[in-house]
Write a protein that binds this DNA or RNA. Structure first.
Lengths: 183, 183
DNA sequence: ATGTGCATGTAACTCGTTACATGATTGA
DNA sequence: TCAATCATGTAACGAGTTACATGCACAT
């Protein structure tokens, strides 16, 4: 199963929406980070409905337009979303991780805390690897100018380092918020 | 054109390699961040060769194994890589951006500096939007507990904020390195 | 007249993934 | 003996993108 279905469920877990509404929310940045197109959207909605994860709530026909089909998440839908949120996504699957966080309010805080601790450890490890790698590369030449391949190699890893630091910082913040039960 | 071809060119711009070597470098994390599989690799190499971006350097047959085909980048290949590096990638195309940075050593520092200044501005703007969005969401409820959808909405955007800050910090570092012509 | 928004959906395509195939060598 | 490594490559599938189709309302 790909993430798109869960992206849709994560929206419906918050409010009832039509396919069109979901697309608006997703493609209008800031609100959401996952993009979707019609060809994934409508077949996926049909599939989710036929499998009982969502159900048609109303069918508002406004004279001229195609009837607006408002969907609602089912109990089964919520359960499958919760199960997906807690199963670990593999390293590098950034979008998927964010998407899971977006539905983390459905999951018990203790479970999320355990997850976060593990994630934090992983990223701490990666940070260590990157730092070591940079040290290694820097040691190869005494002066590395901008036209040298090593310049770019190091620059890219330095980005990775900043990225990992941000990730770890976020884990710490999140752990604090969960402990205090407020954000 | 997809990024894979450029990923291969970016490796060959540094050293001569066989398809197998490229795959090793790419899939062995830390060294590289882009993954590739055989079905993309070998046809892409053939295509790059037939179009004159790379050329076969040697064909070492080690008795029993299939002959190891070592490729070399051509002048045309380097030129197309350089052109690709300086054309702006769209926001959110994170992998592509990193990949371009990986070949930035081929490009004149002044051009890179101009690029970086623009990128920095974009991310500064995004940071502002996220900050505003968080303030807006926080204002909606006086106390937001961990089981409330807003908890997750805010947490996700807070991640975006840390991410953008990291990006801006990296731009500043990079600008400094380019100005001093050393890293 | 022309374009944009609402609201559904389909067709055709490209991109990427998983799995398979060959075949000798080396290490457990 | 069984799996892993080296080194090339293909087949079949699934995911994702771009473009199209309908059709009325409303603003420029």
């Amino acid at each position: 199963m790909s993430s798109i279905q869960y992206a849709l469920l994560s929206l419906l877990a918050r409010e009832q929406l039509s396919g069109y509404d979901m697309k608006q929310q997703m493609n209008g940045r800031i609100n959401f980070f996952y993009k979707i197109n019609n060809n994934q959207l409508y077949p996926t909605l049909s599939k989710l409905e036929s499998e009982g994860y969502i159900q048609l709530q109303s069918h508002e026909r406004e004279s001229y337009r195609p009837a607006k089909k408002i969907y609602k998440i089912t109990e089964k839908g919520i359960e499958s979303l919760k199960a997906w949120v807690v199963e670990p996504s593999e390293p590098g699957a950034w979008d998927e991780f964010l998407l899971k966080q977006y539905s983390s309010w459905l999951v018990e805080p203790e479970v999320m805390l355990a997850q976060l601790a593990e994630r934090r450890k992983e990223h701490e490890a990666r940070l260590g690897q990157y730092t070591a790698k940079v040290a290694l590369l820097r040691g190869q030449e005494e002066r590395i100018t901008a036209d040298h391949p090593l310049f770019s190699s190091i620059a890219v890893i330095e980005m990775g380092i900043l990225f990992e630091r941000g990730y770890i910082e976020w884990c710490d913040k999140m752990i604090g918020w969960l402990r205090e039960n407020r954000i």
